[in-house]
Structure formats: C-alpha cells, structure tokens
Amino acid sequence: MSTPTASDTTTSIWLDLLGSGAGERFYDVGGVRTRVIEAGSPELPALVLIHGTGGHAETYCRNMGPLSEHFRVLALDLPGHGFTDRPATAPTVADHAAHIVGLLDALGIERAHVSGESLGGMVAAWCGIAHPERFDKVVMNTGTLARPDAAGQAQLDDLEQRTLALRDNGVTREGTRHRMNWLVADPSRMTDEMVEVRMRVYSQPGMLDSVAMIMSWVVGMLRGDHGEEFMAPGVLKRLERPTLVLWTEDNPGQTTELAERVSQDIPDHRFEVLTDCAHWPQFERPDVFNQTHLDFLLGA
C-alpha cells in the first residue's frame, strides 16, 4: 500500500484507508462505549494507536493502511473524545492506560504494541509502566512524562485557550482550523477534510465541555497543579519495555532537548527526531513516520 507524503494534496481519509479493510466499530469497555477504527487481520500482532488531547482516531488515517500490512491496528477514541462515551470527570493518565487494557480484554488480546501522540504518548508510556505484562513495545510520539520549560508551557496554555474559545464562542471553521494549525509546522498541510471531521466531532452536544475539561486537566498536570505521580523526576526509569521516543524539530510544548534528556532514563530506548513537522508527524510526515514504526516494531 502506498503511503502519502507531506506534500501530497490529493489524499483523503478514505483514500488513505482504501484497501486496508478498515472499519469503524464500538466496544463495551467496562461500561464505556468505545469507538475504534480497525484495520489488518485479527491474526496479526496488535498495535494500539492513541491520539492526543482533543483528538480522535482519524489522527492516524495516513498510518493505518501501511501499518495494517503487518499488524492488527486499533486506533481508538479515548473516553471524552471523538464518539466514545464522555466521563463526568477528567480521566488521569492512569485511567486512560487502564482503559486501553480494558479494550484489549474486550477483544481477547493478550499483548499488544502501543504508540501514542502527545497525551497519547504519555498514556503509552504509562501502559508500559503500569501494565508491562500486556505490552511489548512502546512508542512515545511528541509527548513524554516530563514538565515543559516556561516557553513550552506558554505554548500549551495557548492551545488550551484556543480550545476554550471554541467552547465559549461556538464551533466555527475558522476557530477549528486555528486550533488545528497548532499541530502542524505548515498550516497548508491541515486539510479541509480533517478540519471538517474535527468540527463534526466537536459539534456533538456537550463534547467541547468534555474536551475543555480534559485539556485543562492535562495542561494543569504539565504545569504542576496535580498529577505528580506521572511527572515525578525519573519516572521513566520504570518503563522497562523497549521504547521508541519519536520527536520533531518543531514540536510545541515539550522541546527536543527535554525529550532527549528524560529519555535517557528509559532502560531500553531509541530516540529519533523527524524534520519538517511539528506535533502531528504521523500526518505531516507519514512516509517516514510509518517506516520508522515498522523498523522499530518489526526489529529484533
């Protein structure tokens, strides 16, 4: 299956998934109706893909096809996101990790690889820390368990404000694109289709209340308001699964220098930096993102 490149303007979500056998399904995970986009044979090793705060499974539309040639790929909407049920209170990183384990239980999957972006990267790390018996390899993509510097925190605060503006002023195409442009190095790469998907997700009654609640919890954790157990110095020493830390030169919120420094705590890790992309390398540089994943996950 061919993989779109950063400059490919002809692709669409359906064209990206065409031929992969991808399908949208809903599963009961501990009483939470959970949406999953699946691709690949159930006989293949499982790979769980976890989006970031305010995201949804379509985050990985450019990756599921190529990855599904080797894995049973499961891209889910986390609780409070996409079309999964919304919780009354903001889930913690540990809550999300436990939900991933619950999804594996619901599908009868004993072990899986896990790859997450932004908040999803933090959740992927916690999956490996708290549930090492259920996960083989871990990929942390533009999100790690470490507090940012002042400049990075300001960037995260800006994203929170863009989210709150949508909640308070209504879901508009301009406001949605303004939020999503934060994710990419080149705004021209954020397609109208992806903006429309996000608008439809956010237009569900009460959805932006949920997204804003979770966003405020995550930004507060990174700022130091709560969640000390997830941000404690040296916490990544507990991550004993083989781990790829995949970063970008232009990642907002947490710098390359920070990510490389804290990654040294991971006993078995590889650190790689992608160029010409920001917070969504899986969307901006799917060609190299997919190949890097395959090299790591299929390697010895």
Score class of each variant (00 low, 15 high):
243 T>E: 11
69 E>I: 05
272 E>F: 11
211 V>Q: 08
25 R>T: 13
297 L>A: 02
118 S>E: 13
113 H>A: 15
177 R>Q: 12
214 I>G: 00
7 S>W: 11
93 V>A: 07
164 L>D: 01
202 Y>E: 02
9 T>Q: 06
16 D>M: 03
212 A>D: 04
290 N>S: 13
217 W>H: 02
213 M>E: 00
287 D>W: 02
184 V>Q: 05
155 Q>Y: 12
259 A>V: 05
225 D>L: 09
55 G>E: 09
31 G>N: 10
83 F>D: 04
169 N>F: 07
235 V>P: 05
37 I>P: 02
230 F>H: 15
98 A>V: 07
124 A>C: 12
174 E>K: 15
59 T>H: 00
225 D>V: 05
97 A>R: 11
43 E>S: 05
269 H>T: 06
24 E>H: 05
80 G>Y: 02
160 E>V: 01
183 L>H: 13
20 S>T: 06
191 T>I: 03
211 V>R: 03
176 T>W: 05
67 L>K: 00
167 R>Y: 01
59 T>A: 03
251 N>Y: 04
188 S>L: 07
285 R>I: 09
1 M>D: 04
155 Q>P: 14
190 M>F: 06
247 W>E: 08
214 I>K: 00
295 D>Q: 14
162 R>A: 03
92 T>H: 08
37 I>S: 01
42 P>W: 02
87 P>T: 10
278 A>E: 13
141 N>H: 06
139 V>D: 10
256 T>I: 12
125 A>D: 05
26 F>Q: 06
12 S>Q: 07
158 D>G: 04
190 M>C: 07
297 L>F: 14
9 T>C: 06
237 K>R: 14
224 G>C: 10
239 L>E: 06
202 Y>G: 00
287 D>E: 13
106 A>T: 11
128 G>V: 07
126 W>L: 02
140 M>G: 00
282 Q>R: 04
